[in-house]
């Protein structure tokens, strides 16, 4: 293991464009160990692209990303990804889905027994013990997203990238999953970068909220959320923060431009 770095992930002067169209520019951010950071912004403002650049899936046009003080050129083995869709592999059982990729060549080599144990633990943590041999088609949307979460946890990530992971779920399931996410990442000692366009989700889940917007996108504001958990029990503080974020959002509306995204 490296000497503990102050920041798990750090980015400076990050810029990206699709062809001539700039997506974001001058993005600087840092994520500490075990910290849950929400990246909040309206649809199309470049959150997903920024997440992919931070995860090492896109190379930025400018700037650099470092993971544990090392420049990141490709996805780090100690980071994992979940998307809006569970994107389970339908030809694999729940167990095989959760284990997917653990045996890939560029992943840390682990014994088969360790692998099984990790998968068992991850599936139990997301409440799917006993469903190991089920097929993805037999699962509800929420259960599928639980498997996707287990698939990420089985890799024992230091950092979990989550791109609107719950926005396809119904409100009740979403609330359940938000609580589950917080619980398991605390248990796994993982940090999270949660991309969301849902202000309430950001407030309920995150330790820190980054507001993204503008064209090209930049980080416009930042809030540290120190409301005690469970935050549903502190409606006053939650409402105050929501109003604060809403007013910041109103101030940052960019003039409508002629181009059609």
């Amino acid at each position: 293991m490296n000497a503990p770095a102050e920041h798990l992930l750090a980015a400076r002067g990050l810029a990206f464009h699709y062809g001539a169209q700039p997506v974001f520019a001058g993005v600087a951010l840092a994520i500490r160990r075990r910290e849950i950071v929400a990246l909040l912004g309206s649809s199309g403002c470049g959150k997903s692209t920024l997440l992919r650049a931070l995860a090492g899936l896109e190379s930025p046009a400018a700037g650099q990303v470092s993971f544990l003080d090392q420049a990141l050129a490709s996805p780090h083995p100690r980071s994992a990804l979940i998307f809006q869709q569970a994107s389970l592999l339908p030809w694999l059982t729940v167990e095989a889905n959760a284990a997917f990729g653990l045996d890939f060549r560029h992943q840390p080599a682990i014994a088969a027994a360790t692998r099984r144990e990790r998968v068992r633990e991850a599936l139990a943590a997301v409440g799917l013990a006993g469903r190991e041999s089920a097929w993805p088609a037999e699962l509800s949307g929420g259960q599928a997203q639980r498997v996707a979460l287990a698939r990420a946890l089985a890799r024992e990530p230091e950092l979990l990238f989550a791109d609107e992971p719950f926005s396809a779920l119904d409100a009740i399931t979403r609330a359940e999953m938000q609580n589950l996410l917080v619980e398991v990442v605390h248990r796994w000692h993982a940090a999270v970068l949660l991309v969301t366009h849902d202000i309430d989700e950001a407030i309920l889940v995150a330790d820190r909220i980054l507001l993204m917007g503008g064209r090209p996108g930049t980080l416009l504001a930042e809030w540290t959320v120190d409301i005690p958990r469970p935050r549903e029990d502190h409606p006053g503080a939650v409402t105050a923060l929501r109003l604060d974020i809403l007013s910041a959002l109103r101030d940052t509306f960019v003039q409508p431009t002629a181009d059609v995204a």
């Binding site: 995860a55 980071s79 990804l81 994107s87 997917f100 990729g101 890939f104 560029h106 992943q107």
Partner: peptide
């Protein structure tokens, strides 16, 4: 997303 997942695992 399957392809993105494979890339996030640095799949060969």
């Amino acid at each position: 997303n399957w392809l993105l997942l494979a890339r996030s695992l640095s799949a060969t």
